[in-house]
Every structure is written in structure tokens, then in C-alpha cells.
Design a protein around this nucleic acid. Structure first.
Lengths: 343, 343
DNA sequence: TGGCTATAGGAAACCGGTGTCATACGCAAT
DNA sequence: ATTGCGTATGACACCGGTTTCCTATAGCCA
């Protein structure tokens, strides 16, 4: 059916016996149009299967409809969730999502991204954590004429396009819940220095402990790297404490899995003797044994909000949107052994 | 520095004192150019920070530089690996990658994708499994003028742009290896009907058993859905067999994890009493306990090959590329108990 | 010196849309 | 009948590149 070329606005105009401009008015839903003319043209469009050329449109409008997703996130589940969330929002628009995984440690990082944005003339970019914490990068993107939306752990100090999760409160709530079911001796595995998420979760832990009237014992607190191995290392340290913790909050699932692995290896029964809570709700969390209780970002909702901020004009979009995470209760956290007796 | 508009080819031409066409010749590295002129223009380009507008180029050339990645893959790790692989290949070209996660079961699937391709005027699309097995979709994309590259389990029956992994041989090799370390009674969990990957892995299992001189016993073979739960269900069935299997090959990691979960729950020690091998090397595989031995697709290499096929002209690209997967040996597979005695 | 050819570079049209402005028309007010 | 006005449409230039075709100049030979 399509001979060799796609129909253009000229073809539509010629066949409908009107000018290009009138067809353009139909495409853009201009109000100043005779209903009969509109219907005639719409019939021709449908007949020809005409689709406006986005490149030509972008050229004439001096703006384009590509939004970039820049990330260096190790959590594949999350990245894909974001992609899906963005897509749901832009599905029926003329925007498209172009992705750019990057290496945060590359010395050419900024240049790479600059070329990417300039080459594609991106309309806007979305930054995922942890690279979303790079202010220099965000500034560069803005300077290049992009709208920038950052996703991350709440950082209320900056009033800009931001979609954040209130990790602090989510962690505090989870820790308080542990206290409610009877835990008194709760350990913590922090994330690496320099990550805002790690810092927020640390503060959240302290908040939760304070709210529960519990004190933080440095002997059952460790700092990890967000990697599996560091969770194992933390287990070696924390399980040797006296008395040992009855519950552990790990700042992400990988470390929780590492901790769990070691604890199980040491013959500790989970959750009967030890409760573990993670953060992120990665695919792994549901598939390890026992299934991990964990805190989950409302990823898709956040991504949808971020995409809306990006494609919607107006200053309302510059208000940060803060989301609260949920605790996904699985089998790795339960009341402590002594609590059952105390009840 | 950038006043309010980006410099255009006209600015460069005016400042360099030449015509647009001459600047265009520099951009396109035309040979018919005086060296002095070229250098002068290049200096102006560098000075202005001029970057050609890809939309204008796309319009004039009547082709564009967007390649689409269409997927409905549940394995986030793999999707991201593919994205990275494609990116490595197109990094220094003018191509960009636009993604489109889809829902295979949506009744509007084909229409959605058609709109996506038409709206963005995609140059080519890459299809990931399992949706890459949809011939109707591939045909539609081709009819829309896209180059199509499919990634999947080997299907040598079609001579087209294809990048595949030889699952059949990889599974056969893994099963044969199990026999080499002493297993005689090997069970199998197949993937769902209708998936080429599932079919290929099934045949591979049979091949491997035959090569090892072993017979397949239907009592220790089950069909799953590629989901965790179906692995658990298979465990209920297969572990009740008499005699029970000493090793299990699961057609993907999720099912292997489900099986493992049930086996552990039944007090079976892995790998001392039972070996388990999965397929895909998902993030979960490394983080469950014990770490799962599994077959891994060379995802990035395959993605690079696929991207090359897409952006390189020529019929050489129509030859299928077949990759062989590796067995990632972790702790879930070891010699069977009786084999140690027999040694 | 004239004529021919090769080479560097330019003018203008074009790709497929959009904006600006002018125009044709119908109808009410003067 | 003329003016004035709102509505529906068209002519034309323009966005930033590329292509086609043409010209100017230099170099070469006779």
C-alpha cells in the first residue's frame, strides 16, 4: 500500500483541495475552522494514513520532543520501572524517551552527556539516583537549554524540578514498626558516605529509634557499600556483638541479602531469632529465602510525576513532589523471641 | 555564553565568509575542498561550538537516526544489558536509542507499536525476547520501513537480521557437564509452551542426556511458566519421584529459585544432596543461597552485534549471528552424594 | 593569446512542517 | 450603497540542513 514514500502534508492538501496551512490547522486542532472543511481533511488524512513528520515539526517549532533518561543506577528493576512510568505518561503525546546509561566514574562523563544532549537537541532530561545528586551535571544540562528533573531521596534544600521519596520518614516508620512488634535491640547497616540516600536513611533510622525511645548502639551499626559483600562483612561484625541484635535494618536489599546469607550460614534462624529489613524491593528481595521484608519506593508513580513535570509547562512543576515509600511485609521480619514470652 | 539561540550553519557560513554549502561540505567531510578553507571553517565551528541540528538533517536526508528498542522482557538485568550494549555501539554515531516497553498481552499491541514507529519515524527497531518471536510484529515493522533486528534463541530457519544465542547447545553442554561430575538422574523444568527459548532448551536437555547416554524420565520432568511459583510447584512434583533426582536443570533462574526454595524448606541440602542449575544469570541468581549455577547469555556482545547490524548497511548484516552461552559455576551444583563414594 | 578542462565554491530549490499576514466572504450598522 | 467587522482560508517566507546545477577561476596546452 505505501508506494515508496510516506504521504506528506502537501499530498493531503492537494487531494483535499486546500492549502498546507489548512491541513496544518486540522493537525493542530485550531478552532478557526469550518466543521465541513475539517471533516473533509480528516477523511483524507485517514484515507492516506498520513502521520505528520516529527522532524519537520521539530524544525519548524524550534523545539523537539525527545526526553533523555540519564542514569548509572545499579538497580535494574528500578531503572526499568522508571522507564515504564515515564512511558505511561508520554504514551499519547509526541514525546519519546531516549536512554543513556552512563558510568559515573568516567572522567569524560560531563563531555559525554553534553554531546548526547547537543547532538539530539534534547527537550529535557531526567536524572536518576545516584547521578541525580551531581549538581554540576544538572547545572550543565540546564545551561544547555534542557528542562531537568531529578529523582532522588528528599533534599528539600533545593527548590527545583524534583521528585523525591521521603526515605527518612519511611525508614523511621519501619524502625518504629520493629519496636512496636517488640524489638529493643535494632542494628543498622548504613550506605556509603556521599550518597544522599544513605544519609537520609541514616537519619531516618536515628529518628525511628528516638521515636521508639530506643538508643542507637554503635556496636550494632556498620557502614556498607550498598553491595552484597558489604552486607556479609557487616554480619560478621554485628552478629559478634554482645548482646547481638534481634533486628537489623539494612539500607538496601543487597546488603540485607548479604547479611541474611551470613546469618543463615551461622545457623541463625530468620525471622525466629533475627529479623531483617531491607530497602528497595529489588527482584532479589522476593526470591531469597526467607522473602525479604523491605521498603519500596513508589517508582512508577514517581516516574509519572517526573515525566509530567518535564512535559508540562508552568512553574507549578517546579515544586518538589515528595512521595512516601511503603513497607512490603514478607517473612524476614517478625517479633523477637523474648517478645513472645513477654506477651 | 550561548545567548539565546544555538548557532546554525548560516552563522558559521556568515562568520567564515563562505556559503552554507561549503560549511555543509566540511561537516560531511567532502573531498572537494581546499585545505585552507576547511581549516578556516573548522576554526569557526569550534569557536562557536556549532553542532548540526539533527532534525534538520533528518528532514533533508529523508531518514533519521533513531533506533527503537521494543521489549516486554521480565528480566530487567537483561534489558539493561542490552541497552548498554547498544549504546556502546552507537556512542560515537549520531544514532540515539529510544525505548518502548510494551505489554505483550495488550490487544492494542500492534497499533501501539505502529504509532510509535510512525510517530518517531524510526530508522530501525530491535526486538527482544519474548516479543521478538512475534512474526506478525516483525513483518509490520518491516512494512513500516524499519530495519528489524531480532534477538532470541537460535531459530536458524529464518534468514534475516537475527542475533541469537544457541540455547540448545548451551543447555546440552550444561547437562553433559552434570553427567560428567557423576549425575545419572537429572530432572528438568521446561518453560511455557509457545516460547522458542523454552523449546530450544527442552531440545538441548534431550540432546545433552542423549550425549551422556542417559534417558529422560517423565517422572522427573515438569513444565513451568518461567515464574518463581511454578518452580515451587515443580519441586513438589519432582522431589516426590522415586528415586528422586540428584540434579535439576531449570529453564530459567526464577524457576530454579522457586525449586531451591522448596527443596531447602523440605530439609534437602543443596548442593550436597541435590544440584540445581538455572538459566539467565539474573541478579537473583548470585544473591540467593546457595548462589546459583546458571547459564548466561553474552548479552552485551549480542546487543553490540545487533546494533551493528542495524546501523551498518549491506547484506552481510542479514546473516544471523549465533552466540554461545557460558555456564556460570557457583555453588548450587556439585557431584551427587553417591558419586563421591564411587570415585 | 585563445580555448579547454578541472576544481572550488555559490545560488536556489527542496525536505515537511510552522508562523505571519493578507484576502475573500457574509452580514450588521451607518 | 458604503463601511466595518469577524470568520475561514490561502500565499509566502522560514526553520536548518542537503542536493542539484551552475559559475568563476586557475592551469594547461596549442
Amino acid at each position: 500500500m505505501p508506494k515508496d514514500q510516506k504521504p506528506t502534508i502537501n499530498d493531503v492538501a492537494r487531494i483535499a483541495g486546500v492549502s498546507k496551512k489548512t491541513v496544518s490547522r486540522v493537525i493542530n486542532k485550531s478552532a478557526l475552522l469550518n466543521a465541513a472543511t475539517r471533516e473533509k481533511i480528516e477523511a483524507v488524512i485517514a484515507d492516506l494514513g498520513y502521520v505528520p513528520n516529527p522532524q519537520a515539526r521539530a524544525l519548524a517549532l524550534r523545539r523537539n520532543f525527545l526526553i533523555g533518561l540519564i542514569h548509572d543506577n545499579p538497580n535494574a528493576q528500578m531503572v526499568l520501572g522508571v522507564q515504564e512510568g515515564i512511558l505511561e505518561t508520554i504514551r499519547d503525546t509526541e514525546f519519546a524517551l531516549v536512554v543513556r546509561p552512563v558510568d559515573r566514574h568516567s572522567p569524560a562523563l560531563l563531555d559525554d552527556i553534553r554531546h548526547f544532549i547537543e547532538r539530539q537537541r534534547l527537550f529535557g532530561v531526567m536524572l536518576l539516583p545516584p547521578i541525580s545528586e551531581n549538581d554540576e551535571l544538572a547545572d550543565m544540562c540546564r545551561q544547555l537549554g534542557c528542562t531537568v528533573v531529578r529523582m532522588g531521596s528528599a533534599a528539600l534544600d533545593k527548590s527545583e524540578h524534583l521528585v523525591a521519596s521521603n526515605d527518612r520518614q519511611a525508614v523511621a516508620d519501619a524502625v518504629f514498626w520493629l519496636s512496636e512488634i517488640g524489638h529493643r535491640r535494632i542494628g543498622f547497616i548504613a550506605g556509603p558516605d556521599g550518597f544522599r540516600s544513605a544519609r537520609e536513611r541514616e537519619i531516618g533510622f536515628a529518628d525511628g529509634m528516638a521515636r521508639a525511645g530506643l538508643t542507637c548502639d554503635p556496636a550494632i551499626m556498620a557502614r556498607g557499600t550498598y553491595r552484597f559483600e558489604s552486607g556479609q562483612a557487616a554480619a560478621d561484625q554485628l552478629l559478634a556483638a554482645d548482646p547481638p541484635p534481634t533486628a537489623i535494618f539494612a539500607s538496601n536489599d543487597e546488603m540485607a541479602a548479604g547479611f541474611l546469607h551470613k546469618a543463615l550460614g551461622a545457623g541463625i534462624r530468620v525471622p525466629e531469632q533475627l529479623s531483617i529489613i531491607g530497602f528497595d524491593n529489588t527482584a532479589t528481595a522476593a526470591h531469597i529465602w526467607p522473602p525479604l521484608t523491605t521498603v519500596q519506593w513508589p517508582i512508577k508513580a514517581m516516574a509519572r510525576a517526573a515525566a509530567s513535570k518535564l512535559i508540562l509547562p508552568g512553574d507549578a512543576a517546579t515544586q518538589p513532589s515528595i512521595f512516601l515509600s511503603d513497607l512490603v511485609r514478607r517473612d524476614s521480619a517478625a517479633p523477637p523471641p523474648q517478645a513472645e514470652g513477654n506477651h
